[in-house]
């Protein structure tokens, strides 16, 4: 399944499409650059709103908000996103042939800071920063003014801090 694409124009010549492809069995991601115009099979992937319930072994259990059916997603298919999953929150789950195969990353996730270290990394060009832990266990680099109990916005794609709530 293609998870990301961008166009490439090498110095000379026609356009190409750089993609990230994710294996729906192993969760492994590879990069591949296609010639522009190459055909590919369209997958019957649909998006459903589901609530994350709990983790059970290697599986993350979600419930469809309309049908109340439960779906399991294997950890390998969620990759880094597991760090941001919070129980009872609703996510856009990708479903292929009635099997949940992944989550569409939101642009931003809001999480509470549960632990804030005092460690200071001096770097004035980017502003002083420190690391904090969120309620879901994700470690995020944030500006010094962030305190325990604050809610912060994070880009799950890059894991970087965006803003304070």
């Amino acid at each position: 399944m293609m998870t990301d694409m961008t166009f490439v124009n090498p110095g000379k010549g026609s356009a190409f499409v750089r993609t990230k492809l994710k294996s729906l069995t192993s969760g492994k991601v590879i990069e591949f650059t296609f010639k522009s115009g190459e055909s590919a099979t369209e997958l019957d992937v649909i998006t459903r709103e589901m609530q994350f319930l709990y983790k059970e072994g290697d599986a993350y259990v979600f419930m469809d908000n309309t049908s109340f059916e439960q779906y399991n997603i294997r950890e390998t298919l969620l990759s880094d996103f597991v760090k941001y999953l919070r129980s009872n929150d609703t996510y856009q789950v990708l479903v292929l042939h009635d099997e949940a195969v992944g989550v569409r990353f939101p642009k931003k996730v809001w999480l509470k800071v549960t632990e804030s270290s005092e460690g200071i990394k001096g770097n004035s060009s980017a502003g002083a920063t420190k690391t904090v832990e969120t309620e879901t266990g994700a470690i995020v680099t944030v500006p010094l003014f962030i305190k325990e109990g604050d809610t912060i916005g994070i880009d799950p794609e890059t894991g970087s801090y965006l803003e304070r709530g």
Binding site: P10, K12, G13, S14, F16, E31, F32, T33, K35, E38
Partner: peptide, 23 residues
């Protein structure tokens, strides 16, 4: 790589370059 009737040499060059070399 997929090589079709209208695939040009320059496309093959770029595809190898972009996939295996540029990074």
């Amino acid at each position: 790589y997929r090589v079709e009737k209208d695939t040009s040499w320059e496309e093959l060059y770029n595809q190898v370059f972009l996939n295996e070399i540029e990074s």
